[in-house]
Design a protein around this nucleic acid. Structure first.
Lengths: 199, 199
DNA sequence: ACAATCGTCTACCATGTGGTAGAGAGTGGT
DNA sequence: ACCACTCTCTACCACATGGTAGACGATTGT
């Protein structure tokens, strides 16, 4: 079993990276198969069509992200800024290990309706809880008063934008390295903290 | 002359929208030609290859954005938060009229090296000036102290992210309309103001 | 031992892609 | 009248793409 399904896993991994990095339409089954080192037909054996592969990739990505986020939420203190810190770190960690992950999520708007809707549906509970949480904390005066829905969207836009656009960072003279990456994440956290703090 | 080049303009317009919305690789010359109502060869007459068309589209987009931004900078007061306000509005205005514009810029990371480098080079002076400006204002204590390069990237990520991902906004129950759009822009401005204000 | 199933492969195919060749209609200059 | 030029078109082409058909060896249950 473990041996058997490893091909499937490797296909899924390669597809995640390439779809997230270059876009779904820009990546052909042939190049994925080539990357994995397998015939295209093997790929079509595990995923009967490209759409199936895309679905599987999206499902896996959503699962990976949401599991990490849920764990981060449960593990932190009550203070909303600390909690947001933890969530950002939870999103940043897999996104750094695999830059394509958030890029994939960002592909939603390019996908045809069925895939996009399904992805949106998968993320919906996470989003709903986040919005509710933001609203409560605003009511308690522990976050800056604002429209919680739009604040959620703004945080999302900032985090995914910064995590998925290495080119934008290179344009300001940034270069990837462990220490620089930590600096980036810390700047991002400070930015969000300042944007969300009450008063 | 005006009549003659209108075909070229219409091709450029359609290509801008479709490239920005769905991605360069996902849009074929045939569908662009179909959209414009012209034969594919006409398109290849004005732009000898798809790459040429992409280049022209990018050049036009960069020009449109940078002209707007420059004008906004010159027209506002000295206060940095006001100035950032003006820039965001300058970016938001064309982006609303044509949602694909910023999406196009975001395509950089997906383009092959030559196109990407050229786009980066075209944006470089704008970026350099922005970073220098942020640094000076931080030194004057009129902006929150931080790495100006990363702050520039963060602002960029926030603005383009929010302007190019209608799906993310729909996910939080947002729906486009003039009044909602203004609310969105105002929340974005408040968000950035809070993130950048000193102290 | 043997049939069935699984996983991978080679050989094709229909379609869509970017791009070439060149014809033809219109316009303006001489 | 003729030429040169601009603009758009029809007719192709080579190639890559997503997908089908089916052969072949290895495992497995009985």
């Amino acid at each position: 079993m473990t041996r058997k399904s490893s091909t499937r896993e490797r296909i899924l991994d390669a597809a995640t990276d390439m779809f997230g990095l270059r876009g779904v339409e820009a990546v052909s089954l042939d190049v994925i198969a080539g990357e994995v080192g397998v015939a295209k037909q093997t790929l079509l054996y595990w995923f009967p069509s490209k759409d199936d592969l895309v679905q599987a990739v999206l499902d896996a990505a959503v699962l990976e992200l949401s599991v990490g986020v849920e764990a981060a939420i449960r593990a932190t203190s009550d203070d909303p800024l600390d909690r947001i810190d933890a969530v950002v770190r939870a999103v940043f960690r897999p996104a750094v290990r695999r830059p394509a992950l958030l890029g994939l999520i960002r592909e939603i708007s390019r996908l045809s309706a069925p895939s996009g809707d399904r992805l949106a549906a998968a993320l919906e509970p996470l989003v709903g809880r986040a919005v509710g949480y933001l609203r409560r904390e605003m009511d308690l005066g522990r976050l800056r008063r604002a429209d919680p829905r739009l604040v959620a969207a703004l945080c999302y836009a900032t985090v995914t934008g910064i995590a998925t656009e290495p080119e934008a960072l290179r344009a300001v003279g940034w270069q990837p390295s462990t220490v620089e990456l930590r600096r980036l994440r810390n700047e991002l956290l400070a930015f969000l903290r300042a944007a969300l703090s009450p008063n």
